[in-house]
């Protein structure tokens, strides 16, 4: 695919837009699905999985946090460069019917799938609540985007913006009433949320997992998560799993 734009956001995340290399439209993609990217500039061997931040027939957008070699090298791409992408992969979030009350929780770059998910929910007449936790105040442009389709609440670890503390303690979580919750973020945060919701709430809850992958196609069995029905591939059976499937 051809790089259309690269926006280097405050805090280090990169928002990148990719256009199809030929005249063909991109295939339809579901919120919560992911893509595999060959980050040639990083000189790594394997492709890397990234959530779909947004997609249309002309453009696929990703939000990437620089964690290691490949994710950091995304910032080195320029408009006009090409990137090899396999998309879309995996099974996304289930989409409830209106008038459901939906809570979205994104921890760090776990917020990546939430924009496209909120957009899809809006199209079904649902305006979700989005609680977004970061170490420090996120980029204003990202905040503006996220608040288009959701009621946005920010939590920061350092108190530089919004609620000072973890997403799990935010009043929108502890005092909110919901029918559904969709959560993506660091493993520790997701496990906290799992225990909290399982004991205190009866929300129908889904988690999007970020296990390390090699093939992304269900062939290598490297990415498995231990579920109530045994080891299952995050790349093909997930990345989205229901709370009841995860024995956390």
């Amino acid at each position: 695919m051809r790089v259309g734009f690269v926006r280097r956001l405050r805090g280090g995340n990169v928002h990148i837009g990719l256009h199809p290399a030929d005249a063909n439209a991109l295939p339809p993609m579901q919120p919560g699905q992911f893509v595999e990217v060959a980050v040639d500039k990083a000189k790594v061997l394997l492709n890397r999985p990234f959530s779909i931040f947004n997609s249309s027939p002309e453009c696929l957008e990703l939000l990437v946090k620089p964690l290691g070699r490949a994710s950091a090298a995304i910032a080195d791409y320029e408009e006009g460069d090409t990137l090899r992408v396999i998309a879309p992969l995996g099974r996304g979030f289930s989409l409830p019917e209106a008038p459901a009350r939906v809570l979205l929780v994104g921890g760090g770059v776990g917020v990546a799938p939430m924009y496209y998910l909120a957009r899809a929910l809006n199209e079904r007449g649902i305006r979700p609540v989005l609680v977004y936790g970061e170490r420090t105040a996120p980029d204003p442009a990202l905040k503006e985007l996220l608040s288009r389709h959701a009621e946005l609440h920010i939590c920061t670890d350092d108190g530089s913006e919004g609620f000072h503390g973890f997403v799990i303690d935010h009043p929108a979580v502890t005092q909110g009433e919901y029918d559904y919750a969709k959560i993506c973020g660091p493993e520790k945060m997701m496990k906290f949320m799992h225990n909290y919701i399982a004991t205190n709430k009866n929300w129908d809850t889904e988690f999007s997992l970020e296990n390390k992958m090699a093939c992304g196609l269900g062939a290598c069995l490297c990415c498995v998560e231990n579920t109530t029905t045994g080891n299952r591939c995050v790349c093909t059976d997930g990345p989205v799993f229901n709370l009841t499937e995860l024995p956390w």
């Binding site: 296990n211 992958m213 498995v224």
Partner: peptide
Amino acid sequence: GNPYPRMAETPSGM
């Protein structure tokens, strides 16, 4: 099979 994590990329290999 074995528990996760089951994979690590290494220089020119895995």
